[in-house]
Design a protein around this nucleic acid. Sequence first.
DNA 1: CTGTTAGCGCCTTCAC
DNA 2: GTGAAGGCGCTAACAG
Lengths: 392, 392
Amino acid sequence: MVKCIKCGDVDAIAKAGIVRGKQRYYCKRCDCYFSQPTHAEPEAPALHRRHQTTIMDIASALNISKSTVSRALQGHSDINANTRKAVLDMAVQLDYQPNLLALGLARSRSYTIGIIVPEFINSFFPYIIIGAQQVANPAGYHVIICQSNESLETEIANTQVLLASRVDGVIASVTGETKTLEHFSKFQKAGIPLVMFNRICEGLDVSKVLVDDHDGAYKGVTHLIQQGCRRIAHLAGPQNLQIGRERLQGYLDALRDHNLPIDEELIVYYDLSNASAQTCARRLLDLPQPPDAIFAVNDPAAIQLLLVAKSRNIRIPAELAVVGFSNEPTSALIDPALTTLAQPLDEIGKTAVQFLLQEIEQEEGPYAPMQRILKTELIIRESSLRTKARPS
Amino acid sequence: MVKCIKCGDVDAIAKAGIVRGKQRYYCKRCDCYFSQPTHAEPEAPALHRRHQTTIMDIASALNISKSTVSRALQGHSDINANTRKAVLDMAVQLDYQPNLLALGLARSRSYTIGIIVPEFINSFFPYIIIGAQQVANPAGYHVIICQSNESLETEIANTQVLLASRVDGVIASVTGETKTLEHFSKFQKAGIPLVMFNRICEGLDVSKVLVDDHDGAYKGVTHLIQQGCRRIAHLAGPQNLQIGRERLQGYLDALRDHNLPIDEELIVYYDLSNASAQTCARRLLDLPQPPDAIFAVNDPAAIQLLLVAKSRNIRIPAELAVVGFSNEPTSALIDPALTTLAQPLDEIGKTAVQFLLQEIEQEEGPYAPMQRILKTELIIRESSLRTKARPS
DNA sequence: CTGTTAGCGCCTTCAC
DNA sequence: GTGAAGGCGCTAACAG
């Protein structure tokens, strides 16, 4: 026996579907809808195992419409101050958390940006990510971090997840395996802004944040030459990455500018794995005429190289001087401490997100890709310091 | 000059807002609304800048209903094989990516789990995260990684993001600052399963994955005693973390069991920052009667300690033996290499997610929290090895 | 086997 | 100022 909550009529009542486990009724007489617990439970809190409060909960607690709640929550101006306060208070009381899924659906905008990095075991990318978050969060964007484990397959899966999550934009650095770019061009096709940083692949007309790899390599190799090294090898990175090619070119140009011969034998390529770095290091040290210095494409490679050299009791830097790239924290801690090129990680992350937000928030018209090239700084430590006096 | 699409009138037209970049008009004469591209573009394909294909696009391309498409995509059994194939082909052709926002909304299930870690600069947590993903991804769950930067405030913000993202479950490790737990109990209130690992706070009735910190500390300190050390200090962690208390207790018990006195002076507490580790190290080394060994609560602290000791030309391990905890990769690379306790990181991550999925996928009834305690392994290196012979 | 319908939670007109 | 209604993209009964 159900009666209308307004007019009290019993006969004019019709069922009108079930909402949230409660039977919903319609009173034909006073044209109103109302709900009552099924089976007339003693108003059991109808708590499903997982229910987070919605604007509807706030609305019915306050006996107002959900539109009003929505407006109050968004800080619309044309709303009664009392109403707003009541809504805000109730929101706190019920511990309301907006449902980002629903919000994103309704606005066709997730207020989330994706970050794809090839790995995060070294602290290189984590520092960049922290910088990125420092810009993204204050701007009202969340960040979803994907790491590709240096695997192209995982990278592709990551792009799909971000696409499916309807992120508003993506900043990415690719794996050493990445040669094709279709998975990235999907972002462009979907109109999702993309910014590449550090490890980029050419062929994509997007904004980029880089460091001057050529200049960094040139500075590192020049430093080795100044230390008296004459047979300088290069432990190079994958050549599909611009970063690998630029650093190689910086190495070559430094040699050429100082009238040193270029010996193909002294250039070996590694695949970014520690095992491969060791193999390459051995190859160089096993040469009939081994190098007196090695410029490594990054610090992890340089560190593996140092390990191999130490295990052979090669004196560093006397017999072999070493320079790395990126200034991993570990480089300052190992023995001998590693000379390296520091990159402004924080700034890379921040700039990438700034470019991205600019593109996301630009209203109409085609976006002209931006590019920023940041400088590296040579950090001289024991691994390359043959002269007594530190350079002033 | 705009005219009504129905009656063709020109004077009865009024503007009625902009929808999707198109001007909307209202015809007073025939009471109808209609839209026209701004600036009367030549019926541009109405392609919004960002449109990703939906099941509706597939449906209309194939002239079937969207439910059929939905079923085909989900691999329902009761569907015509040809229809299925057509749908799947068209999905590929149109490069369909399901909208996870919509899917999550409809199912009240996001198929996403959140991971909260206090930092990811050291490789400790990244390795755990990789393990976690190895279980989560094959099970059909995505992972959203949040790092708290060792800040309680950020940690709270992270819990809110995960709550708002309607994650299906969370695994978490807290910051050194975390003392209150309300932000975590919100997950429980919302019925979202939570598993804590490593750095936990008591007071939450949730599943836990830990290592046997007491046992690890006990093994480390016992090793120092066996090396002949008699005045062993402890660079301890925050005592709000169970991990900090357990390791302290392991240290104390090892001393007691070997009849060594406990000197409160030899126990200093650090806040997980490098700066604080250095301060504490100095405090210990400045004592009138300095220690002959230090057991540090973790590797980063031990490494800072080694730096301070080296800067004072203290011979390690002869004058000062050092043991850390966690086996950071750097520990094997520094000089002297650091003795430490290795943790099964991969297994921690995997187990945490296994517990979580179990709880997520359990149908009804209260869930009985599980607990797993994994063992550590003592890795002996130069920093503590005073005797000539390596222990067999 | 397939189409129809009613939500999921929220925003956004439109109407009062 | 506020309410009602429609839609974002998808799933899930419910009919045929």
